[in-house]
Write a protein that binds this DNA or RNA. Structure first.
Lengths: 143, 143
DNA sequence: TTGAATCGTTGATTTTATCAACTATTTATT
DNA sequence: AATAAATAGTTGATAAAATCAACGATTCAA
């Protein structure tokens, strides 16, 4: 019989929560100095696809002021810098620094390690389907 | 090419975040009076598998005091009552009331509705694999 | 019987997010 | 060209939640 606590949405939520707690601990243990959330921000920035704050806010699904504060703290730590757009002077591009890149790389290694651990015993084709379903659902939920 | 923002963990996190925001809005729109998180609590309680606070804390992966406050507010709304264990007088069983059951039922309908919407266009067998992978990963991440 | 562990509770603190207001700048409308 | 509306970033106030540490009551173990 299926337990109530395994209903789709909550199974989903509790899994990601367990994974996030795991990686938060890992980050603290290895003293990388940032949170998984901030690592996500650095990852986005290093991809150079998006870099202005309002775009980041949309990706992170957070209020722009929340993103603002994350960037503030990353800037204080010297991991990013704000660069004004030359054309539209309202905009500021958030650029990752050398230091930021290093930390991000270190974090990414840790993340891959724990992702690997979490996917242990699961066939690759099932992981592929899993990702496909995730993306489809995200699109459905965002629209 | 795969975008950084679609790396496994963050794709995962952003999907559940979008879904949670969606259901929070839905709950507010229909004025059910509780949050998705509280609905989850009610669901667990109605399954009658677990009912004491320390067990609930473990399932919800929260500090016992956080669970305590959730229950406080549910009790104030008349959706649950605390019943002392007759054998072990430290323990208190959280019991869902008639009112709580009604609200939970209403919430569950809304949740199913939005789950259905989010799973639109995804074959049933892929959903099945998805759930299977979720459970396996949760176990991996929790251990 | 004494000490350790567990359960629920409370207070203090921290973290994080949101909302509203504001400035500066750009874009759209008349 | 002048004015209104929209956008980007910033700040302050506030709210929502979570965590931590400490405590009393109770139970369990040595």
């Amino acid at each position: 019989m299926e337990s109530e606590k395994d209903s789709f949405m909550f199974l989903f939520a509790s899994t990601i929560k367990a994974m996030f707690k795991q990686s938060t601990k890992l980050f603290e243990l290895h003293e990388v100095g940032i949170s998984p959330e901030q690592n996500y921000l650095l990852s986005i920035l290093s991809s150079q696809e998006e870099s202005i704050q309002s775009e980041l806010a949309e990706i992170l699904q957070k209020d722009k002021s929340a993103v603002m504060r994350h960037i503030d703290s990353l800037e204080t730590m010297g991991m990013v810098v704000r660069v004004s757009d030359t054309i539209d002077r309202r905009k500021k591009h958030i650029v990752i620094t050398e230091k930021g890149l290093e930390v991000k790389k270190r974090c990414q290694e840790l993340m891959e390690e724990s992702t690997l651990r979490n996917q242990k015993g699961i066939p690759a084709e099932e992981i592929a389907i899993f990702k496909k379903v995730l993306m489809k659902m995200r699109d459905n939920a965002s629209s």
